[in-house]
Design a protein around this nucleic acid. Structure first.
Length: 647
RNA sequence: GCCGCAGUAGCUCAGAGGUAGAGCACUCCCUUGGUAAGGGAGAGGUCGAGAGUUCGAUUCUCUCCUGCGGCACCA
């Protein structure tokens, strides 16, 4: 007999080998019907799994957090079944659950078309309506391999071979369709909400994620508990599409890109205003935090890249320049810098440094170029030419902790100023293959951890994910619609100072290697502006908005006054434009609202007479009439960058 | 880089083996209108680039470029 403890604390006794399905049936008919799977001592298992020992037992129903995963997992199988019913010669591979849904990779000679997806979706609904029972058996390896060889499923043969010794090889059947799977699964296909899923798209994906392997076809689907949840998700996707920075960038005339310079940005006046405003802000923050700004060359002889190690490891990502042979009076191969660090070491190396000079924080809005692979570029988010808010802190090992803590504090303050309230920290520790002694790794990891813990205990450790040259912290912020973006980074480096011969004279009058801390807060201005655009859906806070106010006339009688209003606001430090066109105020309001101008200032005969303005704020319906001086003061206050407002 | 899809006016898109069309935007004219599109007229395209098939290609075929969705990559 086994004793099963239910979540409400009740204990029930059953013969050993009882299943959760039996228990659910025993408790109530409705529970038996609603049961999807079970949790035995916290482990999610099939309802049909025999229970041999005393355990805590929970019956999982659709309300349970785990239900979504179960549903999506079954949807993956149902989809694979539908595909093989429609095209029996398609080979199945793997089909895991991912965020919002699942995918399944297939090997098929012809590409799946959008029409195929509709066919598959239809067949899936049929399979759900069939209420095919799900059953499972544990097989031994030889039998499973033989089975898949006989059924001509080579990928499954490979998968069976990869299952570690001692782990059960679990075979599942949905009706008469079979798949290898860790489980657990629902009781029958009818438990999947038939109107809660949708196949979204097809994409190529390498077998086992390795680009040397065959490219398979991956069909993605999203699945939820109900039609309502599905719709909410699809609405969210639409919202994300509305916020797409590539679209807003064009509509708001911020920037463009064209095929003569793939991955490079042409910044337009408005976009460049945002860029400059952000850069000016960062410059003030770095100045205040004790950084010294420098500027280093963008085109540098390969010799330096050889010395730094980039030529060896990263050459395929570097733009290499050669002077046209006919005109060259010297034979040199240069590279556009992909990173600023080697150049910063050159600045450090000028003149003998003392321990009294440390920590030396060298900052540069460094213009970098990386030859990113064609398929990886994406709007402003992944480009080939970009500017980092880069800096390198040269310090002693003993200074790592205080510098780390100061950096995290600066980063948090910057993120808050830019409208991101929270961020996550990931701490990557020493990898297998690494440079530097264990002593120095111990010291650096301990310093980073101690510094992080001063701020929060809530961080993720990624063991072995550090760079070969040192441990690192990555900072991820969350945007207004819940997406995460990795922006900030902080990396200890014991290697580059060595390679490039950086040293300082210590208090002991001997020469020492400084530690180099690579760090960035925004990452790249290009990408960060992309994130800002999407986060604000184009509605920048006043201080970042390219045009902060438009003075629009109602009739041409107010033209002179409108110019005066604009001049007054400009004198108050605002970025102002006038709209004196022969158009109705409705038209102007609509246009400037769509352009996401934070303040529309309408002036007509009444305003001229009263020396007033009618201010309409973006997103609000009405307007407020107020004296010009008052409006200028209020808008100027709001347009002040957050750091200057504090000062 | 790989798989799939796409590229036609500034933008969004329609179209067909016989050298192109809509809406919005743009220019001009009329309209001076009080908070999200007033009316009229006009201009605008080497149909991504190159090659091939054809009497004829923007349309069919191939190659390339760029973009999009993923995969791989991201020091």
């Amino acid at each position: 007999m086994v004793t099963l403890t239910l979540p409400d604390g009740a204990a029930r006794t059953y013969p050993a080998g009882v299943t959760a399905a039996d228990v659910a049936k025993d408790i109530s008919k409705s529970l038996a019907k609603a049961a999807l799977a079970a949790r035995v001592d916290g482990e999610l298992v099939d309802l049909s799994r025999p229970i041999e020992r005393d355990a805590r037992l929970e019956i999982v129903t659709i309300e349970d957090d785990a239900a979504l995963e179960l549903i999506r997992h079954d949807l993956a199988h149902i989809m694979a079944r539908a595909v093989q019913e429609l095209w029996p010669d398609v080979k199945v591979t793997i089909g895991p659950v991912v965020e919002h849904g699942w995918y399944y990779d297939f090997d098929r000679a012809e590409p799946f078309t959008p029409a195929d997806l509709e066919l598959i979706e239809k067949r899936m609904r049929e399979i759900i309506a069939r209420r095919d029972p799900v059953r499972t058996e544990v097989w031994d390896r030889e039998r499973a391999i033989r089975f898949y060889e006989e059924n001509d499923e080579p990928y499954k043969v490979e998968l069976v071979g990869m299952i570690p010794e001692g782990e059960p090889i679990r075979m599942y059947w949905h009706g008469d369709w079979q798949d290898l799977c860790r489980g657990p699964h629902l009781v029958h296909t009818g438990q999947v909400p038939a109107d809660g899923f949708k196949l979204t798209h097809v994409a190529g994906a390498y077998w086992r994620g390795d680009h040397r392997n065959k490219m398979l076809q991956r069909i993605y689907g999203v699945g939820f508990r109900s039609r309502k949840d599905l719709k909410a998700y699809l609405d969210m996707l639409e919202e994300a599409a509305r916020r797409d920075h590539r679209r807003l960038g064009r509509e708001m005339e911020l920037f463009h890109m064209q095929e003569e310079a793939p991955g490079m940005v042409f910044w337009h006046p408005r976009g460049w205003t945002v860029y400059r405003t952000l850069q000016d802000y960062m410059r003030r923050r770095l100045d205040a935090a004790g950084y010294k700004e420098i500027r280093t060359p963008e085109v540098v002889d390969r010799k330096l890249w050889e010395a730094s190690g980039h030529w060896d490891k990263y050459r395929e990502n570097m733009f290499i320049t050669e002077i046209d042979e006919e005109h060259a009076n010297e034979k040199r191969v240069n590279a556009l810098k992909p990173m600023n660090c080697p150049c910063h070491v050159q600045v450090f190396n000028q003149g003998l440094k003392s321990y009294r000079d440390l920590p030396l924080r060298l900052a540069e809005f460094g213009s970098c170029h990386r030859y990113e692979s064609s398929g990886s570029m994406h709007g402003l988010m992944r480009v080939r030419g970009f500017v980092q808010d880069d800096a390198h802190i040269f310090c002693t090992e003993d200074q790592i902790e205080q510098e780390t803590a100061a950096f995290i504090s600066l980063l948090g303050s910057v993120y808050r100023d830019l409208g991101f309230e929270s961020f996550d920290i990931k701490f990557s520790t020493r990898p297998e293959v690494r440079a530097g002694s264990d002593e120095i790794w111990d010291k650096a990891e301990a310093a980073l951890e101690a510094a992080v813990r001063k701020v929060t205990d809530d961080f993720e450790i990624d063991p072995g994910e550090g760079a070969f040259y040192g441990p690192k912290l990555d900072f991820k912020l969350t945007d207004a619609i819940g997406r995460e973006w990795q922006c900030g980074t902080f990396q200890c480096d014991f290697v580059l100072p060595e390679r490039l011969g950086a040293e300082y004279v210590g208090a002991d009058d001997k020469r020492h290697r400084p530690v180099m801390l690579h760090r960035a807060i925004l990452g790249s201005f290009e990408r960060f502006i992309g994130i800002l655009i999407e986060n604000h859906a184009g509605r920048f806070p006043m201080w970042l908005a390219p045009v902060q106010a438009v003075v629009a006339t109602i009739t041409s009688d107010a033209d002179d006054y409108a110019r005066e209003v604009a001049a007054t606001l400009r004198a108050a430090g605002l970025r102002v434009e006038t709209d004196l066109r022969n158009e109705k105020i409705n038209y102007k309001v609509r246009e400037h609202s769509l352009a996401k101008t934070p303040a529309i200032i309408a002036v007509g005969r009444q305003e001229v007479e009263n020396r007033a303005v009618a201010v309409r704020r973006l997103g609000e319906k009405g307007q407020r009439v107020m004296p010009l001086a008052e409006a200028a003061a209020a808008l100027a206050e709001e347009a002040t960058p957050p750091d200057l407002r504090r000062a």
